[in-house]
């Protein structure tokens, strides 16, 4: 039993590590993330909305990484729980890939 518990805990830690890595590295679908961000976040995070007006450009890549690494402790964690890991990672990838210090922060006309 004890052996099983250790194995399960080890597995859980490995899964968490992999998910953590995935979140840290992005590698999700940024396009899907943009759609999900608009659908799930912009309802509040918009000009005149209930929360601060946010866009990918609001933070640096490092700041987005930090924020997503501890998403369980942010104000709207309950809403985030309704999303799957994959969906959260897609949103992270979108915000990270178009962050203020990303290669494509703004249109270049």
């Amino acid at each position: 039993m004890r052996k099983n518990l250790v194995a399960m805990l080890t597995l859980a830690l490995m899964v968490l590590a992999v998910v953590g890595l995935a979140l840290a590295e992005g590698n999700g679908n940024a396009r899907k993330g943009k759609y999900l961000y608009r659908k799930s976040c912009r309802g509040c995070h918009a000009a005149g909305g209930a929360a601060s007006d946010l866009s990918p450009n609001s933070h640096t890549q490092a700041e987005w990484k930090k924020l997503f690494a501890g998403w369980e402790s942010i104000k709207c964690a309950n809403e985030w729980k309704a999303l799957s890991d994959e969906e959260r990672n897609d949103i992270f990838t979108y915000l990270h890939d178009f962050a203020a210090d990303s290669p494509s922060p703004a249109k270049c006309s």
Binding site: K32, Y35, R38, K39, R42, A46, A47
Partner: peptide
């Protein structure tokens, strides 16, 4: 100048 937003479908 503001950029009016929209929610494109997926």
């Amino acid at each position: 100048l503001k950029k009016p937003g929209y929610d494109a479908p997926w």
